[in-house]
Nucleic acid binder design. Structure first.
Lengths: 181, 181
DNA sequence: GCGAAATAGTTTAAGATTAAAAGAACTCGT
DNA sequence: ACGAGTTCTTTTAATCTTAAACTATTTCGC
């Protein structure tokens, strides 16, 4: 009886941090903390595996993932928007990926401020391999959920996403055209 | 009819990135992408507000939140574990917060390697104000969900958390003692 | 055409983050 | 006590990140 509780008091997550506010919005905080914790847990695992098996990082992988869907190339600004990171950030990432020969930059003829980036052939090859592994990893991490549970969770997260958008973007009350797939 | 679709093709999220893998684990990827996107959306908004209104950052806030629950102080290692970040990271954060007079370090007498950190009086005061605002912000961002929806989402995220743990921690098949509240 | 304003990217300064190596102090067996 | 091994923390080198300032270029009003 005794050691059930004593053996591993571990599992002291970030979630352990709840309770800031006296009583007010406890449920919301708890939900947010858990969401954050789970996302971090998965992200950390994926980062670790990307580093160990491919010697790369999540931001680089994400950038390449964006490029893969746009064979004709993407301008840096558009890339920045899609990745939801700053322009300066993209500048640096692109620099390193060009260095590694995975992507290439090409200044636009019609607008010499703008530059298009796209995967090189080598980049395509490398990314294909990484994407396969990445996909498998995610599936592995979520494997305890049934397809139905996944679907339900996905749907509820959609509601949450709408709630966040509603609270952060005062505008656009019309049909939001969720480009979501 | 025509402009319903044309007006705002916006909302090009990180979620726009799905579809890496040909067919394999599409559902899982989609779920993970949405989870990540939502978490990032909320986190970005909170970071922004913390910076704008309090001139601070999320990691500093998180660190203080941990300390607030431990009036007697916490050792750096324990802090690192609870925040789920590296030791070196904590070293730097603590440095800056000490600099700002919000927390204090105290080398342990019994073990001169270890140092206890705790909030200063000023730190307590400042944190209380930030925590209240933070709590309100989170509640605001989640406000479109009913209490029931929140609860359901929280529960499903718990299942997901278990799934991730199962896939990342090969050990401990016994009662996992989820220190979760 | 001209100059103002807008746009695309880069640079800069500061911070956050990690893994790996190093330093310092403690524990324990003998 | 002695030294091996462990533990707590810091340091280091690299990357990622952002906001703000800056450069170069384009667009637009007139």
């Amino acid at each position: 009886m005794s050691f059930t509780r004593a053996v591993l008091p571990e599992h002291i997550d970030a979630e352990f941090k709840v309770g800031e506010s006296p009583q007010h919005h406890r449920g919301e905080l708890r939900l947010w903390l858990r969401l954050l914790t789970v996302a971090n847990l998965i992200e950390a695992e994926i980062r670790k595996r990307l580093r160990e098996r491919f010697g790369t990082t999540l931001p680089r992988f994400d950038l390449m993932a964006q490029l893969e869907r746009a064979p004709e190339g993407i301008f840096l600004g558009e890339l920045s928007r899609r990745m939801m990171v700053s322009n300066g950030n993209v500048t640096g990432l692109v620099e390193r990926l060009v260095q590694e020969g995975l992507i290439e930059r090409q200044v636009s003829e019609r607008d010499r401020r703008a530059a298009l980036v796209r995967l090189t052939d080598h980049g395509h090859t490398v990314f294909a391999e990484m994407a396969r592994a990445h996909s498998d990893w995610v599936a592995e991490l979520l494997s305890q959920l049934t397809a139905e549970e996944q679907k339900a969770l996905w749907s509820k997260l959609g509601d949450l996403k709408l709630s966040v958008h509603a609270a952060t973007q005062p505008r656009a009350e019309a049909g939001t055209t969720e480009e979501d797939r």
